[in-house]
Design a protein around this nucleic acid. Structure first.
Lengths: 215, 215
DNA sequence: CTACGCCAGATATTCGAATATCTTGTTAAT
DNA sequence: ATTAACAAGATATTCGAATATCTGGCGTAG
């Protein structure tokens, strides 16, 4: 019994982590030969993993020209943010409406972790802070009962994380991210779906501004 | 030069067509061996195509247990319809807001084709009518400039087509589908995004009712 | 000088056999 | 009778070589 999980899963998760952690430059080619040696697998497995990542928009595929890490651009970021402004707020409304107390508890927990995790200046360098931030936003949506809307929101968030990793975060004097998160939490606990959605939208738009500058 | 398009693409499109046309029963297993002989390809290619279809939710994948045609259920249809009620109307609003005159022309054309294509009683038997109906709804969304929202809407529509194929359509005296389509067209041409969205929502919900009965 | 075709190396795609896993039916022990 | 262990066949996954395609540099014709 060589493995419990399939090779495919292992390579998929490993490569996903490398891309999301910023180890691979956006737009850089992902050659099957290299992946085979790095992850000790065959071409077929590497291709399947690449295909899965392409479906999450973390990798770009072009027929007969192989795969690359998804390229980043201001226009694409605008498209992404616009989609998130609608889909993620929609998922949050569902979540606030349908989430049970266990979900509520997870949100509070994730928020606490976010508070106590030290935040570095540069999002790319601080892995722990990035994870805590991502976990909080993920938890916010987890109450949504509609599987499809939830999956869409997660997909968009994934790509958002890629932009986040590759933006040079410069301190923004006018912005108080902790306050934004706290406001979000309060609205959620008060079960005010519209207010929570508005605050999430503001948060996303503010983040967009920062990311555009850091591109 | 054996082929211009990749084998993969050919198998993907072919199998997609087979599933969407109702040639394969929902829930039935899709064995690589069979696909290899039918489409004259190797296991690897069959797997990749299966993976692509799984991403569009037309096929279900379970690790170490292979692939099956996506199963249909009332609960899943409810989930799908709810998602469509929000995403597809959203895409339509974008479309009405941002679509240019060339798009408008395509909508009018698609609607005309829908009018002149004879409709059979059973959606599964009449391929032409199904295509014309699908083309009209697709055209409605085509004006949407946000690529992600558009892609999401298309994905949901694909799965919806699968339900449509497998529902036994029984004549519904209270429903006038032509009128619904015409109302949709009018609202679009009047550039009334909210009205169009409302009418699309009503159309989707009405279709849902029919499909649930025919399941 | 520029455009076009051709060659060689690099890369992507595809194949079919080898390996690992699951499923089902049978037997034996509790 | 019920459960557990096992074996055999079917199926999924993985491999590494074989094939097809692309890319970039070079030479030739216009």
């Amino acid at each position: 019994m060589p493995d419990k999980e399939t090779r495919n899963e292992r390579v998929y998760l490993g490569l996903r982590e490398e891309i999301l952690s910023g180890a691979r430059e956006p737009g850089s080619p992902l050659r099957t030969a290299e992946l085979c040696t790095r992850f000790e697998c065959s071409v077929g497995v590497a291709r399947e993993s690449l295909l899965r990542l392409a479906e999450r928009d973390l990798v770009q595929e072009r027929p007969m020209q192989g795969f690359r890490v998804a390229a980043l651009s201001e226009a694409d970021l605008r498209d992404l943010t616009d989609a998130r402004l609608e889909i993620e707020t929609l998922a949050l409304k569902h979540s606030v409406r349908d989430g049970d107390t266990a979900w509520e508890a997870r949100v509070v927990g994730a928020h606490h972790l976010l508070l106590v995790t030290p935040r570095a200046g540069d999002a790319r360098t601080s892995v722990a802070a990035g994870k805590a931030h991502g976990a909080f936003h993920t938890a916010l949506l987890e109450g949504c009962r509609n599987q499809r809307i939830l999956a869409m929101a997660y997909r968009l968030r994934d790509k958002g994380e890629l932009y986040r990793r590759w933006s040079v975060a410069e301190p923004d004097g006018e912005r108080d991210v902790d306050a934004e998160h706290h406001g979000l939490l309060d609205a959620v606990l008060a079960r005010d779906a519209d207010l929570a959605a508005d605050r999430l939208a503001a948060h996303l738009e503010a983040t967009h501004e920062v990311l555009v500058k850091g591109l």
